[in-house]
Nucleic acid binder design. Structure first.
Lengths: 259, 259
DNA sequence: AGTGGAATCGAACACTGTACGAGTCGAACG
DNA sequence: CGTTCGACTCGTACAGTGTTCGATTCCACT
């Protein structure tokens, strides 16, 4: 374990004493390009053009395109905030964090595609995680449960926002409004439901619901369930006074995997 | 709304009366290539080589690379199964589905990167969703709540599995074992925690926990919370007898977004 | 035998990430 | 002041990408 494990975060950024390119500027412009035109539109040449410099000049400040993406991703993590635990209940803090995270993801749709590829180990990501963990510490969770709770919350938000983003991308690609798209897609589910006649009636109703508000309700539904579940566990732990922390040598999950 | 909204699923596959290439074969081989070497390794030329045919021949059976990805994605959805609602409790059904979904995602790590890009509207995806919805119908949920519950569950599993996959990818890229990688990454979190001295002690403990079992416990933790939350809502609805279904004209989420 | 569609494929185009080496610039030094 | 050296920029080039297009092969059926 001698060597430090090379990464953007271990390496120093280039000294910025010249008025030319700059890591911060590169990251900023890359984010702007990503927001405006999506992940596929970000190429080193286009980014260079936007910066008014040659494409390969970027490689002096950043080793890779992947490394650049690590930087922009962590920049987005920096946009996420957690309320101070002293000012609110843990539940409000967690809930408002969830809503703000959803908002940030929706305004940077490309982020969802990165978190599956790029490791989230930048300073902002780590800092955010510790703040969220502090919230659950304040709530009464102990040991690793704090981390489990935090990562569960983030997992839910990321997961539930994913189809929402893919939906919006599809709307942009087709130029359809959300309810139009819903109607246009309906033949597909009808065809599948053809084999199961008891479903067609149910699916017929779906054409009528407003997709946007359904998505919002869906988000709130799952979030409430999750917070309720966390709260229940908290109360349970309060009655049973010996919440033994995770044993590293324990066997894998109690419910065996099915494969 | 005249035109049908063109997609792989609306178009008929090429008639397969010749012994040459075949949509099914292409999809199968593409999946194998993806499993073996990851998303970046899938190029039309390499896939063609694997099929013993020219790269561009594939375009006779499939319009796009994107369309091909839609097909392979839906094929993976086909691997997911839901227990028959008659045979178990809804909770066991949901729980075992979650575990099997996690297993499938871990064995096809590239899937996570697709669900953010490719819409999940294939027949297998829809069929799976209806089966899951049936589980929650059996549980006692009514109206759109069934869909909310189902999509919440899937969102959680996808979301919580994402960092796990990115972790494994990182392990493969660096060739480190999971605990070695944990130790190698530790300097990063230490540097961030340097400004907050109360955290260093806590983070020091982290180097000792076994990452794999922590991940498994994390999964189980969040899943239990979620199912508990769902169950609580179910009981609440049972006491209050008028669970009015979602009103399309309702205002956006009760808790306003923070942006 | 001949015709017509199904299917395959090679060449070409515009584009990608990035290695390399030549070039520019500004400051420090003799 | 001239030189040198590092920081920095960038043009060129290479291997690879998805996809189009037109030519070609192949086979079933008249």
């Amino acid at each position: 374990m001698k060597q430090h494990f090379s990464s953007v975060w271990t390496r120093e950024p280039r000294t910025a004493k010249s008025p030319g390119l700059d890591r911060a500027q590169i990251v900023r412009e890359a984010t702007a390009l990503l927001d405006a035109e999506g992940l596929d539109a970000l190429s080193m040449r286009r980014l260079g053009a936007r910066l008014g410099s040659g494409a390969t000049s970027i490689y002096w400040h950043v080793a890779n395109k992947d490394e650049l993406l690590e930087l922009v991703l962590d920049e987005v993590y920096g946009e996420l905030t957690v309320l101070d635990v002293q000012e609110t209940t843990w539940r409000d803090s967690a809930s408002s964090f969830a809503y703000s995270m959803r908002q940030v993801l929706l305004s940077h749709p490309w982020v969802i595609n990165l978190i599956g590829t790029i490791p989230s180990i930048g300073p902002n990501a780590i800092l955010l995680m510790t703040r969220l963990v502090a919230t659950f510490d304040h709530a009464g969770f102990r040991g690793l449960d704090q981390d489990y709770a935090a990562s569960t919350l983030m997992a839910y938000v990321a997961g539930v926002t994913t189809p929402e983003i893919s939906w919006r991308t599809m709307m942009e690609r087709t130029g359809l409004g959300s309810n139009e798209l819903n109607a246009a897609l309906h033949p597909l589910v009808e065809e599948v439901a053809a084999g199961h006649p008891e479903l067609t009636a149910r699916y017929a109703e779906f054409r009528e619901v407003d997709v946007e508000t359904a998505r919002a309700l869906n988000f709130e539904f799952g979030l409430t369930c999750l917070l309720d579940g966390l709260e229940a566990r908290l109360n349970r732990a309060a009655s049973a006074p010996a919440p033994v922390s995770a044993d590293p040598g324990a066997t894998p999950p109690p419910r065996p995997s099915l494969h």
